[in-house]
Simulated assay, not measured.
Amino acid sequence: MTTRIDQRFAQLKAEGRAGLVTFLMAGDPDLGTSLEILKSLPAAGADVIEVGMPFTDPMADGPAIQAAGLRALKAGTTLKKTLALVESFRALDRTTPIVLMGYYNPIYVYGVERFLQAAKQAGVDGLIVVDLPPEEDDELCLPARAAGLNFIRLATPTTDDRRLPKVLENTSGFVYYVSLTGITGAALADYSGVEAAVTRIKRHTNLPIAVGFGVKTAEGASQVARAADGVVVGTALVNALKETLDAENRAAPQTVAAVSELVTALAGAAHGARGAGDGRRARPSWLRRIFGRIAP
């Protein structure tokens, strides 16, 4: 089985560069705007797109992504509408990998077999379900892989060499290395341990390693991309979106551009980190105000 995820990381490897993996919540701040943002991401430089499935009890998410999920739920986003969102995107883009990320409860309520059929039909390529451990692979992981979907697992700084083989046993697509313990949104102040962590994980697998949690700026993306196969950014994009909303959390004319311009800055940094071109593009002034100095 070769998926769009496998093909994209093979392409990135051949080009000698790291990829940018972007996360945004489906339906934030509304389904129409969410679709327009998704459509803008590939041209802005996103190599893989993670789409959050809104859930009422997101235990691993920080305040920004929790708020994004609540905005999406308030706007009427359901799992069925999330799949429809992906299907609408896929009608216009046949190559960019899409990963659904979230929690098992909505999938269980939807029905595993029904969900997997609908996800495959919509054009989903992989799943990240953060609250299903490897011991529960029969529940969703193995059926997902049988359906032709990658099942992507998280490794953390506390996943030691004894635990890693179990975590990686049925993982496919890529390994998502969580660069710090805790919830999403915290800043990663020290990137020095990323290379050692990636090297350690690669001793156990040939899969690409994407690093996330704590990457907020293009400068940070560049540092991570020197060691990892992919850089995952979520909270910074969610914050860029939130900064444009009005007092009632409605989208503004600049909402789509706010996200896509930040993605362009991050992609330029990630893609250029290994000398495959410096990736320099104009950085809008509002980005500098919100995130500080943005360097490639």
Rank of each mutant, 00 (worst) to 15 (best):
T199L: 12
I201K: 01
I201F: 07
I201W: 00
H204I: 09
T205Y: 11
T205R: 12
P208F: 10
G212V: 08
F213A: 11
G214F: 02
V215Q: 07
V215W: 05
V215E: 08
K216Q: 00
K216H: 08
K216R: 06
T217P: 04
T217R: 15
A218R: 04
E219P: 03
A221Q: 05
S222K: 14
Q223D: 03
V224W: 07
V224A: 02
V224E: 04
A225V: 02
R226F: 00
A227C: 03
V232E: 01
V233E: 11
V233P: 07
G234I: 08
G234A: 10
T235I: 10
L237W: 06
A240H: 09
A240Q: 14
L241K: 05
K242H: 12
E243F: 15
L245M: 13
L245T: 08
A247M: 05
E248I: 10
N249C: 11
R250P: 00
A251P: 11
A251V: 14
A252L: 08
P253D: 09
Q254H: 12
T255Q: 01
V256T: 09
A257R: 15
A258E: 09
S260E: 09
E261M: 05
L262I: 02
V263A: 09
T264D: 06
T264Y: 05
L266M: 03
A270T: 09
H271G: 02
G272T: 13
R274H: 05
G275V: 09
A276D: 01
G277N: 08
D278H: 12
